[in-house]
Simulated scan of single mutants.
Amino acid sequence: MEVYLDNNATTKVDEKVFEEMKPFFCEVYGNPNSLHSFASKSHSKMVEALDYLYDGIGAADEDDIIITSNATEANNWVVKSVWLDKILDGDKNHIITSEVEHPAITAACNFLETKGVEVTYLNVNAEGVLEAKVVEDAIKDDTALVSIMWANNETGKLFPIKEIGEICKAKGVLFHSDATQAIGKVTVDVQDANVDLMSFSAHKFHGPKGVGGLYIKKGVELTPHMHGGNQMDGRRAGTVDVASMIGMGKAMHLATNTMAIAYEKNHVGMLRDKLERAILKLPDTIVIGGTGNRTPNTTLISIKGVEGESMLWDLNQNGIGASTGSACASEELEANPVMNAFGSDSELAHTGIRFSLSRFNTEEQIDYAIKHITDAVHRLRNISSSYAYTPKNHHSEL
């Protein structure tokens, strides 16, 4: 059996999404910006896809949603455009973000630091959440941007986006949120949350890879990301990947309706909790950040005495895919940065395993995963030089 439990890294494309995309490769292939009938067939479907995107995140008609290649592109665009618009051409020189952001934000901010920009990286509390008051206290007269993720990609912890948005609005500071790990798992409403800018990627909610979006609130100005044409209101030139855009729209529609969110919360949450409870029956295991206030599909568990990479190797031999953290940093063998941010000791920071589920997981798969995770823990602890293994620590039933 194969069991995929790494859905925060990427998700399978829903077959309904694939079917929606297929005609736009070889049958309906006109450039949507042309004036002939070939173009109109593409254009009408693109409008439908955009409607799905607007509805999915609660955007107003006068707002913009710009199609990008992914959230990494959108994140970089926001950070670097703020540098161009408000720092180089303005009187501000300060950006606020958190220590647990996706590398697309932190690396872009690191780059701006080399250009003389002051960046404040706020730490999370013991539960892995950034408190709104901490953001408020960090804002200064020259703060140009606050960028805080909606949900953490490793722990699933939800941040107080609405409260932070209200603070930024009151202080006149631009507020951006990376909602890549939130869409399709919890309700995302950009108007209710007071965000000015928001990034997302289709492949995190069962859409195709290579396409994402940037929500831009009416009145927010960003330097165009690419020049050369009038596509996307002149903000991102270039012929749109029609098939991928249509696929993203369909995936958004399937993932964000009321029934879909309820299914994610109840069915997926139940499977996640079953898996988590079983692992926690093993001694010396903890959920990093605790079990409250998080997306229903994610758990980051530290298993003392078991190196994360060794655990993944064992699981992979039995057809189970999981992760030690962000896939964008998976080739790094350094300690998990999120666990370091929580203040975990050096040993625990190497032992985090992230399991992230989707609506395509089944209870049979979870039962299979529980058995092999348990076997792997016993085997690896038995040969570990850092963990005192005794027979009484062995749980034969979970």
Rank of each mutant, 00 (worst) to 15 (best):
L300E: 11
E221C: 05
H102W: 00
I96A: 00
D189Q: 12
A260L: 02
K12T: 10
S34W: 14
A193N: 12
L112Q: 02
G321P: 00
V82E: 02
E363K: 13
K250C: 01
D196Y: 08
T180E: 14
K169W: 06
V119A: 05
N31Q: 04
H227V: 13
V119N: 05
F200K: 05
I246K: 00
K218Y: 10
K162F: 03
L5N: 01
M259E: 13
N75L: 06
M248T: 00
G58S: 09
M1T: 10
R379D: 11
E113Q: 13
K86E: 10
T256C: 04
I366K: 02
N336Q: 15
S385N: 14
K281L: 11
D189W: 10
K204R: 15
V82K: 02
N194C: 14
H378F: 13
L88R: 08
T285S: 07
K204M: 14
G165E: 06
E99N: 02
S81H: 03
K16Y: 00
H372W: 14
V134S: 12
I303F: 09
A71W: 01
K281D: 11
D241W: 07
K209T: 15
G228R: 09
V119D: 06
K157S: 09
V117K: 02
L112R: 04
R277P: 00
S44V: 15
V82I: 10
I301E: 04
Y121F: 14
C109L: 08
M198Q: 08
K157L: 09
E163L: 07
L53N: 01
K185W: 13
L158A: 04
K209M: 15
I303Q: 09
A251S: 12
I148S: 07
I216S: 02
A376C: 10
R379M: 11
H176P: 06
E2I: 09
L348G: 11
E221S: 12
E113M: 12
I65R: 03
G128I: 04
L282H: 14
A60W: 03
D55P: 00
A144F: 07
F200P: 05
F18N: 06
